[in-house]
Design a binder for these strands. Structure first.
Lengths: 221, 221
DNA sequence: ACACGCGCTGAGAGACCGCTGAGACGGCCC
DNA sequence: GGGCCGTCTCAGCGGTCTCTCAGCGCGTGT
């Protein structure tokens, strides 16, 4: 657990110990990065605002180095796009401060169960490639410019490539749990994406799954 | 540690020893330079105002001789442009006097962890070349005049060439951790840089990464 | 044929972001 | 002192991004 508010960190550490977790504390981003490289942990709880090196950077760096230990990011409530950014850097889950302790425990259990799932540096579907870390996207050799939301949505779709994902799932993953608006926004952004990754190439890779309100990204089409 | 105020030096040395560091003291610039050449230290804490030879000179000389031991500069609060100048000479980090002891420890730990990272004599991106030590810059054969800050910023951007860097990262690396102002200053200096390295040549090498508040230096464009 | 549910899209409001000109301030040289 | 340079702040602008909304079209069930 990398968290610089000493009291909070200690309190949580004690709570987690009581739940049977084996907790190691770090209060500095660089120190946390160092330890994450050195040892294999079950999961990492990572604050964003840290001395030394901020959480985003730590996470991104680890991912770039091929360390896929599950990471749970602690985002500040105030930051509007913290969640999207957190997932963007390669975090597995995030939690907005302040949070209930039981929620933290539940999420951690989920992450531990899932284990380290090495994700490739680049997500692909056919000739469509997206680099979650470098924030770039290409269809074959042609670079595609995406906004932050478009990028996050495409990443989520690529993660579910094949199976497909419903609007509600996408909303949860891209917009965050506490998004209150309508899920029409997903339709809108799917539209934007199609106009960037499909229309110019005469493709149909981002397909609608009628009836259940879902989308699927396929390699060809 | 090269520091001529004996009492301060001794106090810090004791504190660092208590923290587990192995400290060696020097009170003279030339002596410090000499020792830095002779032995390989984990890091060097270097005051600027020194008898014998000032800190800037020591630092620059070491770098020119290919000694890349991490250097933490101690700059006087009064000197307005000390920070820029310090990074200019090839220092890895700097700290304004007076400083909190714990801060010094944290920074030192960070530097030790990073280790000596030899920097090339000349950083390049396409036909844009910059000499970090000599403070010169060229686009192809055309020399470009840069101020200290512009130079430091361009150096940071070149170090992150390809991936790109966020304003916050750049602020940290160029202006230092304890810079309290707005990160708009980065935008301003990016503007200055563009007007010197891009506009006159009809290029677009210094690109904005929208959304995340970052910049990327590309070879062509 | 008709109504309905579902998904798609254009228009537009508002927020956000990045860029720039103006200017304050201090150091430096003449 | 006066002018010049480098640094930084600030406010305003223009463009972009995000999201909402309403209307349209299409397929399906009655």
């Amino acid at each position: 657990m990398v968290e610089d508010e000493i009291h909070l960190a200690q309190a949580i550490a004690e709570g987690l110990s009581a739940e049977g977790f084996d907790v190691e504390l770090s209060h500095d981003g660089l120190d946390g990065l160092w330890r994450a490289r050195e040892r294999t942990y079950g999961a990492i709880v990572l604050d964003i605002l840290l001395p030394g090196m901020n959480g985003y950077k730590v996470c991104r760096t680890l991912r770039q180095e091929g360390v896929w230990t599950p990471i749970l990011m602690l985002t500040a409530k105030s930051g509007t796009y913290d969640e999207a950014e957190a997932l963007d850097t390669g975090a597995d889950d995030f939690l907005s401060k302040p949070f209930a302790f039981v929620v933290l425990v539940a999420r951690l259990r989920a992450l531990l169960r899932r284990g380290a799932t090495p994700r490739p540096r680049e997500l692909m579907a056919g000739d469509l490639a997206l680099d979650p870390v470098g924030r770039t996207c290409r269809r074959g050799p042609v670079p595609i410019d995406l906004t932050r939301r478009e990028h996050a949505l495409l990443e989520a779709l690529l993660r579910h490539a094949g199976e497909g994902a419903t609007k509600v799932e996408l909303l949860r993953e891209v917009w965050g749990e506490d998004f209150t608006g309508d899920d029409n926004v997903v339709e809108v952004y799917v539209g934007y994406l199609r106009r960037k990754i499909d229309v110019p190439f005469g493709r149909r890779s981002l397909q609608t799954v009628r009836g259940i309100g879902g989308y699927r990204l396929v390699a060809d089409g």
